[in-house]
Simulated assay, not measured.
Amino acid sequence: MKAANFHLPSYLARIGFEGEPSPDFDTLKRLMRRQLFSVPFENLDVQAGRVPSLAPEAICAKIVERRRGGYCYEVNGIFAMALEAVGIPYQFVAARPMTYAIRRPKTHVAIIASVDGTEWLCDLGFGSYGIREPVNLRWLDREIGQDYDTFRLTTVSDRDYLLQSLVDGAWKNLYEFNRCPQELLDFEPANWLNATHPDSIFVQGLIVVLQHESGKAMLSGDRFRYVSKGGVEEMIVSAEEVLELLKRKFMLDGNR
């Protein structure tokens, strides 16, 4: 995925990546973690009544130039641009979110990257439940510890994978996917659905998530939470406090 305005050094500066990137696993892992720790998952555009653009140039301008975040199509889109610039092969895949009470269509986009013949699931856009570094597609039915979180990848058919997270001692289904390659353009209908349908969680309220080395900050409507290995801090905030939190905790300017 390419954009005429994508400039790798500018992207690396945006996410605070140090050193020279190479088409290897160390770079893949560090790129993913640095972006997660600097580019928030957020739906400010949807809350303002706008459908986020999936045009590569628009994604790059929003995240790199205007220092915003975005939801799955945007944050995984900019990550794909970086992988292409570095020389790491990848493909988009469609995933079916499993965190809802009813069965949903495959509205989520994730990435499978290839390094030295090994395929890695990369995803920077699943909000507070998301993985924090690449997951090897060969690591089936084992506990995968990432910082303070634990994940598991299993299969549900001869072609479909299921990603799970260990929550309160039980496995929670996150999403299922397969290796069928997609283009970001294929997600235009899903993007419109997520940005306009009244049942969409992105339409119903503000959602902002920023991962940190020691935890994650989350803003859902008027509830702010910070989750870490040491526990959970939670508070209800006013509209004025939300604007301050966006700047102070998520490095966002709500007017951009």
Rank of each mutant, 00 (worst) to 15 (best):
D26G: 04
P21M: 04
E18S: 02
P21I: 04
S38L: 05
S22A: 13
S53Q: 12
E42N: 08
K62T: 09
L54K: 03
G49V: 04
G19H: 00
V51S: 11
F17I: 01
D45E: 15
A58M: 05
S38C: 06
P40T: 15
E18A: 04
E42L: 09
E42Q: 14
D45Y: 13
E20D: 03
M32W: 02
L31R: 02
P21L: 07
E20R: 02
A48L: 04
E65K: 14
D26A: 12
D24A: 07
V46N: 08
K62R: 10
K29F: 07
V39I: 15
L36Y: 07
G49W: 06
L36G: 05
P52G: 11
E57N: 15
A61C: 08
V51Y: 07
A61M: 08
V51I: 15
S53N: 12
R50K: 15
N43Y: 09
A55D: 13
V46Q: 10
S53K: 09
V39T: 14
F17Y: 13
E42C: 10
S38H: 11
R33A: 11
T27H: 00
E20M: 02
L31N: 04
N43C: 14
R33G: 05
P56M: 15
A58Q: 08
R30G: 00
V64N: 11
A58T: 02
A48R: 14
P52S: 15
R30S: 02
L36Q: 06
E65C: 06
L54A: 02
F25W: 06
L44S: 02
F25S: 02
A48W: 01
V46K: 09
A55M: 10
F37S: 11
E42I: 11
E57V: 14
G16I: 04
D24E: 10
Q47I: 03
Q35A: 09
N43L: 12
I63K: 03
C60E: 14
E20A: 04
E65N: 11
K62C: 07
T27P: 00
R50E: 14
N43W: 12
A55F: 10
T27I: 01
N43I: 15
F41G: 05
K62Y: 04
P23G: 13
S38W: 03
G19M: 00
T27M: 00
L44G: 01
G49L: 06
D26M: 06
T27A: 01
L44T: 05
R30T: 04
E65Y: 07
R30Q: 04
G49A: 04
S53C: 07
A61S: 14
A58Y: 05
R34H: 08
E18P: 00
A61H: 13
V64S: 10
P23L: 09
D26T: 10
D45H: 09
F25K: 05
A48S: 07
F37G: 08
L36K: 11
G49Q: 07
R50H: 14
P40R: 14
L44M: 06
E57P: 03
T27N: 01
G16P: 03
P52Q: 13
A61N: 12
V39H: 06
R33I: 09
R34T: 07
L31E: 05
V64M: 11
E20Q: 03
L44N: 01
E65H: 13
V64H: 13
L28E: 06
F41P: 05
R50V: 14
I63P: 01
